[in-house]
Amino acid sequence: MSSGVAVATSGVRFWRQLRRHPLALGGGAAILFIFLVALLAPLVSPYDPIAQDLDKRLQGPSPSHWLGTDTFGRDVLSRIIWGARISLLIGVGSIALAIVVGTAFGAVAGFYGKRTDWTVMRIVDLFLAVPGLFVIMVIVALVGPSISLTVLLIAFIFWPSTARIIRAVVLALRAQDFVEAARAVGADGPRIIVRHILPNTAAPVIVQFTLQIARAIILESGLSYLGLGTQPPTPSWGNILSEAQPHLRIAPWVATFSGMAIWLTTLCFNFLGDGLRDALDPRLQV
């Protein structure tokens, strides 16, 4: 039962720490709100995001269209709401994948050490030096853009940094008594990694997850902005921005609001991530 108590007290400490970060709490709440809006997009969005109304092209914000309309007379607010689905789906999906792959490689490298470690870390170094954005652009241009491809490619860029962090954590854990104890009672490598080491990497993984989602959302919208991500008419924050740029002079609101959605969402994830880092890992306090 002692482990239950330990969990409870660390949970209490976690909340106490997190409460000291009003920005992190605010960011977390805002993220929940954005998720909710994205989930309920069919219910909360005032218009069909792809329905064109050519009589109402490029209208400024008004009571009927809070954030105005775009070049096809589509409601900008509705497009941003539906775009949230794509941005969050790709952001969360790609980073989840990156974390799984990165954790697997990092844990194996850190736990087995020696040759395995050396080999894995050289692969990690290689991937860290690859100009990721360019590789993504090349592959998308050749294969043709799709959501699943974007998720895969963003994961491909982000897994090495997770692998590095997890390796460092596992290196430290490997030498601890409880791992020695597990080994003494006869547990083999894979079992020790999964049952004893991985649960202890939760803190850095959660922090990494939150902070990297922010970067993945920016990357996805950047790709969509370049025409290599989500394809119109499906709205994504990046392609709304890209479609808005030619009309910047006469309809600045489209670019302003769609970009603001990316910016504020990223900001919230950064607030939350830093708050979580402080609350979960006192050693890493900045």
């Binding site: 922010a214 920016i218 919208s221 950047g222 902005y225 921005l241 740029q245 910047l248 670019a255 302003t256 970009g259 603001m260 990316i262 910016w263 990223t266 900001l267 950064n270």
Partner: peptide, 11 residues
């Protein structure tokens, strides 16, 4: 640090 570079440029 949260700015998307391309949006900041446009703004």
């Amino acid at each position: 640090m949260s700015f998307p570079t391309f949006w900041l440029g446009i703004m």
